[in-house]
């Protein structure tokens, strides 16, 4: 239940914030150094980082719960125990993967 709601919420977040930022990022990238500097300044501000980390988590959560829904579309994994374990794994997985990505990014780049 919770994971199903998260799938929707993260899907909406990715649709608006995710694709919005992707589009801004590509446009800034193609518009020259000043436009890109503005993007970088906003993206690397504390609020910008929180949003980017949120989008990364939304991406992983939506991807993992999406795989779960694809499996369930085949009629599998409806048994209570299996279903619940799978749901919990999507949350654990999304948090672990988000942490791994951002420890890597903040540790290595720049």
């Amino acid at each position: 239940m919770v994971v199903s709601i998260l799938h929707r919420a993260t899907g909406v977040a990715l649709s608006f914030a995710g694709l919005g930022i992707l589009t801004w990022w590509l446009f800034a990238l193609s518009s020259g150094p000043e436009a890109y500097a503005t993007f970088t300044k906003v993206a690397t501000s504390p609020l910008g980082l929180v949003v980017l980390i949120g989008i990364t988590w939304s991406f992983f959560q939506h991807l993992l719960s999406g795989i779960r829904h694809l499996v369930m579309d085949t009629g599998a994994a409806f048994e209570l125990g299996v279903n619940k374990t799978f749901a919990i794994l999507t949350i654990v997985g999304s948090i672990v993967l988000t942490a791994a990505v951002w420890f890597y990014v903040l540790g290595v780049a720049k």
Partner: peptide
């Protein structure tokens, strides 16, 4: 609109 803007930017690159 979003898709067109993103594709235009990508094409320019």
């Amino acid at each position: 609109a979003g898709g067109a803007i993103a594709l235009f930017a990508l094409a320019r690159i």
